[in-house]
Structures are given as C-alpha cells and as structure tokens.
C-alpha cells in the first residue's frame, strides 16, 4: 500500500530527493504544456532521458514521479487526452498514467478502461499500478477479484495493491482457495499473502 496520500506528498519527495536536472525539467515541462497543451505527448514521452530513473519512493522512479506530477498538475475535465497518453505510451508512460489516476480528478469511472487494459497485460509493473487506489475504488467486483488472483498468480505482493481490507470477500477467498489447492497438487509453493484472506473468510468445505 502506498505511503503517499496526495500529489503534494509526492511533490515534496521529488523536490527533496530528485536531482537538480529533474527539478529543472519538471518546471520547464509544466511551462511548456501550460503554454500549449498539444505538446503534452512529446514532453511526457521524454521524461526518462531528462530526469533519470532513480527509484525514489513506493517503487516509483524519478522519471515516473515527474510524469505523475505533470498529470496531477493539469485539469482533466475531458479524460480523452489522458486515455490517448496511455494508448500511445511505452511501458513506462503507461505505468505513469496508471500511477497518476489516484492523484487526479476524474469523472467517476472514466479511466476504468485503461485499468482493465493494464490488467489484461502480463507486465507485472502495469498490473500492480492498475491496482492503485483508483482501480480499487472503481473496478467492479468480478474484475477486482480476478485482478487480485492474477497478482497472486504473477508473484505481485498483495501489500502493494489497494483496497483489499474493504473488497476481499468470500468469493475471492474461494478463488484463492482453489488456487492454493492447484499449487499444492502440483507440488509448488504457495505465496504467503493468500493466507490472511483465507483466514478472514473461512469456508466449511475447507
């Protein structure tokens, strides 16, 4: 679960820990996109070479935080340009858009299609980022359960995803229980983090 509550917290970390060059880039990037919003795609694409890729906090790197801070700083009455950034983004850009969703004001479930897209990939960083606070809040129950199962399946630690205390339910426990049985039958190891959920929703058949 992220320790960063707001974009302001994230910016504070960035201002303290990011290299000078990254701070300068963020300032000029914001200036460029506020002058001309159509520059956003090319500005957004170049964050890595400008800011470097040093991990700073919560698994987020300087380039990704810079991207999130640009998105969080803009208003998104029309979510379409945000969908476009994701659609045309490389893996890092997609990751940044997903990570930004919980820091920007969006009209309800407008961004759910890109969360669902990320959950269909096999890129573990995208899957984990899709299960931030936004995904946890807006995914329908079946999609959320399958996303959690996919995390367990892909080795993504469940403490890195949002929403479990509220959204874990008996049906998710049943799915995880079946998964555990499959793993045991195959003589394979079982990820530790399924047990607390199974313990919360004991079933008579188990």
């Amino acid at each position: 679960m992220t320790a960063i509550a707001t974009a302001r917290d994230l910016e504070a970390v960035f201002l303290t820990d990011a290299p000078e060059q990254a701070l300068a880039w963020l300032a000029s990037a914001r200036e460029r996109v506020s002058r001309n919003r159509y520059e956003l795609p090319s500005v957004f694409a170049g964050a890595g070479r400008a800011c470097g890729r040093t991990p700073l906090i919560d698994g987020l790197r300087t380039d990704e935080i810079a991207r999130v801070l640009i998105l969080a700083w803009l208003s998104w009455r029309d979510p379409e340009p945000l969908m476009d950034l994701y659609r045309w983004g490389d893996a890092d850009e997609k990751h940044a858009v997903l990570s930004a969703l919980e820091h920007i004001e969006l009209d309800g479930a407008a961004a759910v299609p890109i969360v669902e897209d990320a959950l269909r990939t096999n890129d573990t960083r995208l899957i984990a980022a899709a299960l931030g606070r936004y995904g946890a809040q807006h995914l329908p129950d079946p999609a959320y359960r399958h996303a959690i199962l996919k995390c367990v399946f892909c080795g993504i630690p469940l403490d890195s995803v949002s929403g479990l205390p509220d959204r874990a339910d008996a049906e998710l426990a049943r799915m995880l229980d079946d998964f555990v049985r499959e793993r045991i039958a195959a003589g394979r190891s079982v990820p530790e983090d399924v047990w607390p959920i199974l313990a919360r929703f004991p079933s008579r058949s188990r």
Binding site: N122, T124, C154, G155, I156, G187, S189
Partner: peptide, 14 residues
C-alpha cells in the same frame, strides 16, 4: 517477480 503466466514460468526446481 515474474511468474505465473508471465515470461518466466515458475522457479527453477519448483
């Protein structure tokens, strides 16, 4: 970190 239906399936010796 990459198991399951990802690229590296399972761990060696599993």
């Amino acid at each position: 970190s990459f198991q399951g239906s990802s690229v590296l399936r399972g761990e060696p010796g599993e």
